[in-house]
Amino acid sequence: MLIELFITFFLIGLVSFGGGYAMIPLIQEQIVNQHGWMDQQHFIDTIAIASMAPGPIATNIAVLIGYNEKGLLGAVIATMGTVLPSVIIILILGKIFYKIQDHSLVKSSFYGLRAIITGLIIYTAYMFADTNGMFASMSWYTWSQILIFAGSLAAFIVFHKHPVSVIILSALVGIAVYS
C-alpha cells in the first residue's frame, strides 16, 4: 500500500508540467478513477483544503491524501513521491538545462503540452461541476450553486482575489445559505 502510494505520486510528479492546478486532472485520474482511494466529492473537498494552506497545491494534496490513507507515514511517502521526480530531473539536467531549454524541440513540445493541459483542466472543471449537481434540473439548489460559482469566478478574474479569501467568504455564504 505504501509502495502503491509512492508510485502513484511519483507518476503524478513526473508529468506535472505547468505546476499548480494543471496537476489536478492527473491526480484525479490516479486517485479517484484508477485506485478509488476517495470519491469525487471527497476529492473536491481535499482540493479546497489544499488551496487554503500555504505551499504548492500538488504537494498539499499529496500530504492530505497520504495522511488520509496511511497516516503520518503515508503523508511523508506521498510528498516524497511527488517531489522526487523533479529533484532527480534537476540533479541530472541541472547543468545542461539552461542550454536545452531554448532548443526548438523543447519549445515546440511545450506548445503542444500547454494546449493539452488547458483541455484537461477544462474537462476537470466540467466533471467537478457535474459532481456538484450544477447541471441537474433547475431547482433552488442548482441556482444557488451556479450563483456561488459565478460570484467566485468574478472574484478571481475581475477582482484578482486570492483563492484563500474567496474560499473563506464562500464558506461563510455556505453556512448562511445551506445550514
Partner: peptide, 11 residues
Amino acid sequence: SIRATIVALIV
C-alpha cells in the same frame, strides 16, 4: 458552497 468555488477556481 466551497465546492462551487473550487469549480470556479479550476475554470
